[in-house]
């Protein structure tokens, strides 16, 4: 069972999560793409932090768990940059645009 620690005020955290949700929904109404990115993804990161730290008790957890999660995220970063050229570089002798030319999918099946 979990170690003894003072539980945070969960209702208060939930309230702030709902406020952040409302801001992220209202952001796109201003129709400024840069602001939408900040209100949508910036706030998603803040919400994720609030949930992980307080609801998942990550702030009370041993450091080994934080290291485990940071390691997983770093490896995900390696995956992101490893896959990026395959998706974003659309030139070269062997390149076939399967999204535009659906026949190439049939050839590969």
């Amino acid at each position: 069972m979990s170690e003894a620690y003072a539980h945070p005020n969960y209702v208060k955290i939930w309230f702030w999560l709902v406020v952040l949700l409302l801001i992220s929904v209202a952001g796109p109404m201003l129709e400024i793409p840069a602001l939408t990115i900040i209100t949508a993804f910036g706030i998603a990161v803040i919400k994720a932090f609030l949930v992980a730290a307080n609801f998942m008790h990550l702030k009370f957890e041993k450091q080994i768990i934080s290291f485990l999660l940071i390691l997983a995220l770093c490896l995900l970063g390696v995956f992101f940059f490893g896959v990026a050229p395959d998706i974003m570089m659309t030139d070269g002798d062997q390149w076939i645009d399967c999204i535009a030319d659906k026949s190439c999918v049939e050839q590969r099946l």
Binding site: L69, A72, L73, L76, F79, F80, V83, A84, I87, M88
Partner: peptide
Amino acid sequence: IFIFGGLIACFIL
């Protein structure tokens, strides 16, 4: 994290 993160990473790319 890899299961969902992989999908999200590819979606963003």
